[in-house]
Design a protein around this nucleic acid. Structure first.
Lengths: 239, 239
DNA sequence: TGTACATCAGTGAACGCGCGTTCACTGATGTAC
DNA sequence: TGTACATCAGTGAACGCGCGTTCACTGATGTAC
């Protein structure tokens, strides 16, 4: 350990981290749209042009923050789900969903950056797609596992016909192999339901109607879980 | 009709309308966060300080646009629902929901203003609450009517216990009189499901998974409608 | 191990821009008598 | 109907601000021989 002084490459990574964490802090105070390179620099005690050594443009910094946030959220949901016994998919879903919600509530501006209105003029580059998909993957793999270990078949064929051509099967064959098409559709529904609820709560639309958002959310997830889990898929119900 | 020239009061109202419609047009191009008084004035061929005769501040203009948008959306959903026979609540819900979606898709930036991330630093004044509630009212009154004309009772008592204290009963007694508590909760779920789906579609989260968003949305609404309508509540199913 | 050169982080000044808001003003529209 | 005054819409200049980005520079760190 002769590392009294960090090498240049190390210092560079460190500085990138410092820039990102400063940005996160400022974003937490004033929101993503108000994030400015100059303020980040000021906060770091550095001249604003110095940041251009690390991010060629403001949008690149934003992109980095987005990717990090997606990964952070993905990890968080993944870990939450993995702490629940594998044979209880219902509780796994609950755990993942409530982890997502918890993350959203403790990082509201980052959540808004990911799931709120797109920043006008900003186009997310292609490589953000994979980290973005991670949260959805957590949910879909819980459901896929549940169906793999189930004998239930052809459930919800009533909507099977209506579903022809609605989903992108190429993607979903990879992500949810062996899962009936209706269940896939309902899984996407669960996904958007979770985020729809969280957004409504965070953005203030439940004011005056929902008093206990914790329990309301749990009920919503549970109800939607009914639609995606195999009939024999899990003993637990509710909170 | 001696109105060759409009009176001052009329001219004033007219000018307010012109300011708002110019703002809407600019918002449609660049989004709400980028809306600037100066640009509106420029676009109207008027000096920027002139706008202060009509709106004391930028936020007041934003508020006016928000209120208008809520009312516009509310009207639109209301009319759509009213074109469907009153004895078919399922189709009424479908009509209202798809009207909301249609409105959102043709006014994406206004939708984002209402249901996307809150503009940081902007606090919506109290009087925006009532227009905001109108869309939700359309949905809830369809459901309330359906239950009024139904014999079904105490449905979904399985979650009745869990629901104690979750909702704000004072509000909901007024809005959904006679509707069982679980159904009220599931109605709020339907509400956020509709907007969750629309936001996901509009903000690009369905890319790569949902191919036919029209039909996907119809299925989602139909599935959720199952949860809120009385068992005998309507013959139609899905499109 | 020592020297010559290349790489790179950070500086400081500048460019060009747009923003919200204020203020004293002009001239037209409305009102009271 | 006519005059004196008050109200109000719009002007033009200004204030003070912050932003993203570029560029020539200094001095420290790394690399090749």
């Amino acid at each position: 350990m002769s590392e009294v002084r960090p090498t240049r490459a190390e210092a560079r990574l460190l500085q990138i981290e410092r820039i990102k964490s400063t940005s996160r802090r400022l974003m937490a105070e004033k929101g993503a749209p108000g994030l400015s390179l100059r303020e980040v620099a000021r906060e770091m005690g550095v001249v604003s042009s110095a940041l251009y050594r690390y991010f060629p443009t403001r949008d690149d910094l934003l992109t980095a923050l987005i990717v990090d946030a997606y990964n952070d959220l993905g990890d968080f949901a993944e870990r939450a789900a993995s702490r629940v016994p594998r044979d209880d998919p219902r509780r796994q879903l609950q755990a993942a969903a409530s982890a997502i919600r918890k993350w959203a509530k403790s990082n509201p501006h980052e959540y808004a950056l990911l799931y709120g209105s797109p920043v006008p003029g900003y186009e997310a580059p292609l490589f953000t797609v994979e980290p973005a998909a991670r949260v959805a993957l957590v949910l879909s793999s819980i459901i896929t596992e549940a169906w793999r270990h189930s004998n239930a078949e052809g459930r919800r064929d009533d909507i099977g016909e209506t579903l022809r051509g609605v989903l992108v099967t190429r993607t979903l064959d990879g992500v949810m192999p062996g899962v009936p098409e209706p269940v896939r559709a309902l899984s996407l529904m669960l996904w958007s339901q979770i985020f729809g609820c969280i957004s409504f709560e965070l953005f203030g639309h439940y004011k005056g109607t929902v008093r206990n958002a914790n329990r309301f959310f749990a009920i919503v997830v549970d109800e939607t879980a009914n639609l995606v889990l195999p009939p024999d898929g899990g003993p637990t119900r509710g909170t």
